[in-house]
């Protein structure tokens, strides 16, 4: 293929591109913000639909029944793994897995937290891939410093009862 012509100078414009939080004008931002604030009190807040009773966690302002979920309900910090996958320290096309040292598998789980009707995609710690199973009970593992960030609820571990 012919080479592209690259110019030595390019035009510069000032601006910002908020990669982390984006600037979606979307009700979910306000809902997620409220949820993140609740993390500081170690609470998971979901939204319940007045039309069909589904509880969304993470919260969402619209339901498939076309009602607007508006009732805040506390979702339990224990839940059940409904599906999972794991991967090693490799690159999927351009994506470098950043979590976990080389060779240590990253376990991604779909968790149905008790009291919610949706999946939350988290990572599972304190378990080996061969120990994970669908139906496994897990609990949220809060970080030492809770800052009200989505990462506060990124990890679950096997439930020790």
């Amino acid at each position: 293929m012919a080479e592209m012509e690259y110019k030595k100078e390019t035009r510069s414009v000032e601006g910002s591109w908020p990669m982390e939080h984006w600037s979606w004008k979307f009700e979910s931002i306000a809902l997620i913000s409220k949820t993140r604030e609740a993390f500081k009190e170690k609470k998971l807040l979901g939204l319940k639909c007045p039309g069909c009773g589904l509880v969304y966690f993470p919260p969402k302002p619209y339901c498939r029944c076309m009602s607007e979920p508006d009732e805040w309900v506390e979702v339990k910090q224990q839940g059940t793994i409904t599906t999972y996958t794991f991967t090693g320290a490799w690159a999927y096309e351009g994506i470098k897995e950043e979590e976990g040292p080389a060779g240590e598998p990253l376990i991604i789980v779909g968790v149905n937290f008790d009291g919610s009707d949706t999946l939350t995609v988290c990572t599972l710690g304190e378990a080996k891939p061969e120990e994970v199973f669908v139906g496994m009970r897990v609990q949220l593992k809060w970080p030492e410093n809770i800052e009200g960030r989505l990462d506060d609820i990124a990890h679950v571990v096997p439930l020790r009862e």
Partner: peptide
């Protein structure tokens, strides 16, 4: 607002 912030989901995962 949620899943993409966590960088866990892509087409293959």
């Amino acid at each position: 607002t949620f899943d993409r912030q966590r960088w866990l989901l892509n087409e293959a995962s």
